[in-house]
């Protein structure tokens, strides 16, 4: 289903998102983009299964969820359906191999709007063991966002797998 919000002119659609664990969520997706706040970093940590264990204030503010709603949820709660599944497959393969992953990511807010980030994810090593992952997002260059959007559209996007 799609339509336009009369007051703002933004294009809104409803889409059923299917996650890797088989769960589903009917999400409202709009084309409204929230600008990344200058000078800030969005920081989160997950356990080794990708379940959120820590978020900073910028994460809460940009995602539109409360901290209590985020902790304990899979990180894929932010996954935008325009993002191809292959990007996240590459992310997991990279960090599980012990390497740092960088990429431009379109995230989905609770209210259906989106925000683009330049994300870096690393494994948290303690006494030689991976105990989780830290993800830090910063303000992306507009040129790289536009390139990434074209590239992801060519890949066909994906349901939130």
């Amino acid at each position: 289903m799609s339509g336009s919000a009369a007051a703002t002119g933004e294009v809104v659609r409803e889409q059923l998102l299917t996650y890797q664990d088989g769960s589903e969520r009917l999400a409202t997706i709009s084309d409204r983009e929230i600008p990344f706040p200058d000078g800030r970093l969005i920081v989160s940590r997950t356990d080794t299964a990708g379940v959120i264990t820590h978020v900073n204030a910028a994460f809460v503010e940009m995602s539109g969820y409360s901290e209590a709603e985020l902790i304990g949820q899979p990180h894929s709660i932010l996954r935008h359906p325009d993002m191809p599944a292959a990007a996240f497959q590459d992310l997991w393969e990279t960090i599980r191999a012990g390497n740092k992953w960088h990429g431009y990511v379109k995230n989905l807010r609770k209210d259906g709007a989106c925000y683009w980030v330049y994300a870096t994810v690393i494994a948290n090593l303690r006494h030689g063991e991976v105990v989780g992952y830290t993800s830090v997002r910063r303000k992306p260059s507009r040129r790289r966002v536009e390139e990434s959007a074209r590239s992801y559209a060519a890949m066909g996007g994906a349901q939130a797998t």
Binding site: V43, R45, K100, I122, N124, T134, S135, V136
Partner: peptide, 11 residues
């Protein structure tokens, strides 16, 4: 401190 180090590593 480990958290700060991880964060700086991402930067």
């Amino acid at each position: 401190t480990e958290f700060m180090i991880d964060l700086m590593e991402t930067l």
